[in-house]
Amino acid sequence: MKVAIAGGHGKIALLLTRKLADAGHEVVGLIRKPEHADDVTAAGGSPVLVDLESASATQVADALGGADAAVFAAGAGSGSGVERKWTVDRDGAVLLAAAAQLVGAYRFVVVSSMGAGQGDASSDNVFQVYLAAKGEADDAVRASALDWTIVRPGGLTDDPGTGRVTVGDSVGRGSIPRADVAEVIAVALETPSTVRTTFEVVGGDVPVAEALASLSPGPLAG
């Protein structure tokens, strides 16, 4: 499978790139800065330069390069202001979804956030706007023709992965290593039961594959 990852230089994206490459998949890492290319290559991916804040859907589609699946793992980052929560966290996901449909990359995974959709779009608080933007992005993807999966992790840590998680519609507040989020995405890409599902995930006691297999695919899946 050929997988394109938007936000290809992010921590989760690089971990995911290595997991997918080690499993024999071809990975394209979409990056905004040329200086990030070497890190993507080192992780086993092929870097492609494209800026989701300025590119057209056709340009992003070209960058996907015939991918079978796409992952939205981009984000404006903790130091960004309100405006980029809309232009990256929301609009970037919408743009990638449009591009994926253009090239037939119908398997589509979004790295969202616990609490997405519960923010206040009119707030001056950046985190409130972030949650609102992520919610609008998720809604747009769910309205698409894609075979989507929306992953909403709890607080992210850089601890070593455990390979064990808790998933569900609502799992309560908690944290999860980025390595385990990457594992969830890698497994979800090949797990039909995750198609058209939105789920929260935190650290837990259930092996990732077993946890995801317990989900029920949504309507129009397959």
Rank of each mutant, 00 (worst) to 15 (best):
F72E: 07
G222I: 06
A132V: 12
L102A: 12
D91G: 09
A221M: 03
G75C: 11
V195F: 09
V187I: 13
K134L: 09
D169L: 12
A143F: 08
Q59C: 02
G79P: 03
A105Q: 05
S216Y: 00
R107P: 07
A74E: 11
S193E: 14
Y130A: 14
G161S: 12
A69L: 12
A186V: 04
K2R: 15
A133D: 11
D120Q: 10
G8T: 03
G77D: 06
I185C: 06
A55Y: 04
G135V: 06
A23C: 01
A221F: 11
T191Q: 13
S78M: 15
R142N: 08
Q101I: 00
P47G: 04
P219S: 07
A76S: 15
R18H: 10
R90N: 07
L16S: 03
A188L: 03
A73S: 15
A42Q: 10
Y106G: 11
P207V: 05
E210N: 05
G168W: 07
S46Q: 14
R32H: 13
S144C: 11
S78A: 15
A21M: 01
A221V: 05
F127L: 14
A100V: 07
D169Q: 14
S175F: 06
D159A: 15
A121G: 13
T17E: 01
I5Q: 05
V94Y: 06
D138H: 03
E190Q: 12
A76D: 08
S123L: 10
L64Y: 08
S56P: 05
G115I: 10
V88Y: 05
E26A: 14
T17V: 08
E53H: 02
V71M: 10
F108V: 09
R107G: 05
R107H: 03
Q101S: 14
E183I: 01
K85I: 00
L49G: 02
V187D: 00
V48D: 02
G163E: 06
A221H: 15
E53D: 13
A188V: 02
A4Q: 08
V40F: 03
D22K: 12
G7P: 07
T41D: 00
A186H: 04
V187K: 04
G92I: 09
G104L: 06
R164Y: 08
T194S: 03
G203P: 00
A4N: 10
R173F: 13
S175K: 12
D91F: 11
L96T: 08
G222Y: 11
V129H: 08
D51F: 07
Y130R: 11
A70W: 09
L189Y: 01
G65I: 03
P153R: 08
T162Y: 03
A137E: 09
G161P: 07
G168T: 05
V141D: 10
E200L: 03
Q128A: 14
V184D: 04
G135D: 07
V28G: 01
Q101W: 00
K11A: 14
